[in-house]
Nucleic acid binder design. Sequence first.
DNA 1: CTTTTATATGAATTATTATTCATATGATAA
DNA 2: TTATCATATGAATAATAATTCATATAAAAG
Lengths: 115, 115
Amino acid sequence: MDRCKEEELHEARLKEALQRMPSDEQIEEMGSRFKSIGEPSRLKILFALAGGELCVDHVVEAVGGNQSAVSHQLKTLKAARIVKCRRSGKKILYSISDWHVMTIIELAKEHLGCE
Amino acid sequence: MDRCKEEELHEARLKEALQRMPSDEQIEEMGSRFKSIGEPSRLKILFALAGGELCVDHVVEAVGGNQSAVSHQLKTLKAARIVKCRRSGKKILYSISDWHVMTIIELAKEHLGCE
DNA sequence: CTTTTATATGAATTATTATTCATATGATAA
DNA sequence: TTATCATATGAATAATAATTCATATAAAAG
């Protein structure tokens, strides 16, 4: 293909790309969700919770690290509405609230190492 | 369910969770991929490239921001092997190389606002 | 060659995020 | 009521990441 035609094609593509581009709010929303799960300990927390609700110190055992750090990370995940919690006696039980996100994580895991 | 039984159940869950937990390398790998796409301008770049390859200044037009910043972001995406590039004359054309990641992004977009 | 165009790069700065530590809260048990 | 257990929180610090600026490189045009 000659240079000029190629250039026209790319211009057209750019126009289409701009039309399909999600809104800034959508981009922000998606970005912040991906950011929430783009951190090793938070990912681990989600894998730990994938089997059902766990109390904080079990989460701590599952992911390692100290209680305070895990608590902060749970807070981040809760703010992103990926997990939720309820109290039961003196324990607080955390669980996945957004299974879409979990589906995406499982999908990503399946794709690992198959390129 | 009484407290004691509940505790047993949770212990069992923790054990299962630990067994299902991906290896540290897998967690790292997934985390770094999610991190790469957990940033608004990089996400925009990927949506821009979803329609086909574009040269850098078209990407700059599509996402806004300055040339250097976009170049650094492209570098990040390339390091994560999510995009690739080739030279054509004096332009460098970027394109998606990991369509799994793009599938995940599209999926995430579809899920937005449907909870 | 020299200039221009397109892109990349490194270093410095700035901004964002995570971790730690000390302490607070809230529920139960004694 | 007091002590204890489980968890949360805020502030300080440490670590990581993004942006900018100046400059480098590589190809093409003149």
